[in-house]
């Protein structure tokens, strides 16, 4: 049901933009207005969301670590897994963001015949996620050849690396192959694992389908039904220099691609995809494990009126003496 809903949403998006561009000639809407609105929603949405997160306090010091905390000199501490300094935290965050360190620890729990509960390491999710995120990143960076004039030097470098094996012409990019494979795996994983299927929602399938359809339309344009990419760059540069133009004769498949990307950008600040900024603001990762050396004060702690034992004894000294309870300070003799 969730799968069908998400798939149907993608089909509606594609049909809408096809009709809009082909029949209604709404090139300007789909080529200029919607991309602008989507980029604005993306940037503003994330900024506001991050500010909202930053306004909520972190009451407890909660780094979640998997290593020896720094304590006595002669006990070897784990500087990256359980960092006690800012530098260590930066290192740990880099491992997390660039290599998905905690996902590498992913385990699976299975009930085997017996019945025996078996635990095991499960690296496929880590591998699939890493493959998907990195190739998506490379693909976004490669697109800077459309956004920047003159083309920045990192683009040809990435293109050469990505098309290292020089298969076909235009050269087949490894990232194009890997991203489709990785997304397909991430989707099938949700479908074939009954436990995962049970907890998967439409909001899990929709981003997968959305990014997959973006990748497929892009691949179609590169290898099969071409569009005039000189015009595409003219449109992109027009957007970024705030002189929007709609060049004649860009195929409808480009508008489908663009509208899907716009959908992704606009959907971003309201979805699970917010883990992109969210990873930086995770208190379990971005706090140093130094609770033994530095006191973490709850930011919304207010002065609490306390009743100390001394005050208690002062109040009840005579009664305590009368019942024979021990006193820290004896009654003063009058």
């Amino acid at each position: 049901m969730n799968i069908l809903f998400s798939l149907f949403a993608i089909v509606i998006i594609i049909v809408a933009v096809t009709l809009g561009v082909e029949t209604a000639k709404l090139d300007f809407l789909f080529g200029v207005i919607i991309p602008y609105a989507a980029i604005a929603t993306f940037i503003l949405g994330i900024v506001l969301r991050v500010i909202r997160w930053a306004r909520s306090p972190v009451p407890y010091h909660i780094p979640t670590v998997a290593g020896q905390q720094k304590s006595l000199k002669w006990i070897k501490s784990s500087k990256l897994e359980s960092p006690s300094s800012t530098l260590g935290v930066i290192g740990r965050m880099c491992l997390e963001i660039l290599l998905f360190r905690s996902l590498f620890r992913n385990t699976k729990t299975e009930l085997k015949n017996g019945p025996v509960l078996a635990y095991g390491s499960s690296k496929y999710l880590w591998l699939g996620a890493l493959a998907f995120h990195w190739t998506f990143f490379v693909i976004v960076l490669r697109h800077f050849r459309y956004f920047m004039e003159p083309v920045p030097a990192f683009v040809p470098f990435l293109q050469d690396l990505d098309g290292f094996f020089q298969v076909g012409l235009p050269i087949l990019y490894a990232s194009d192959v890997i991203i489709v494979a990785a997304l397909t795996f991430l989707f099938l994983r949700r479908v074939f694992d009954s436990k995962l299927r049970y907890i998967s929602l439409a909001s899990d399938y929709f981003p997968l389908f959305l990014i997959l359809s973006i990748a497929i339309t892009g691949i179609l344009m590169r290898y099969f039904t071409r569009v005039d990419i000189v015009n595409v760059k003219e449109l992109a540069l027009g957007l970024f220099s705030f002189h929007p133009v709609i060049p004649e004769g860009i195929g409808v498949i480009f508008y489908i691609h663009l509208f899907l990307v716009s959908t992704l950008l606009a959907y971003f600040p309201f979805s699970k995809l917010l883990h992109m900024p969210g990873i930086f603001l995770s208190p379990t990762r971005n706090l140093a494990n130094n609770s033994r050396t530095k006191r973490h004060v709850n930011p919304w702690e207010y002065p609490v009126r306390v009743h100390t034992y001394e005050e208690y004894e002062d109040e009840f000294r005579e009664k305590m003496k009368a019942t024979g309870l021990p006193l820290e300070k004896e009654l003063e003799e009058k």
Partner: peptide
């Protein structure tokens, strides 16, 4: 974050070749 995601705007503004 905003700088990176709007970098094409600044780049094209600096190069002045967006209309080329």
């Amino acid at each position: 974050f905003v700088g990176l995601f709007t970098s094409p705007i600044w780049y094209d503004l600096a190069s002045g070749k967006a209309a080329d």
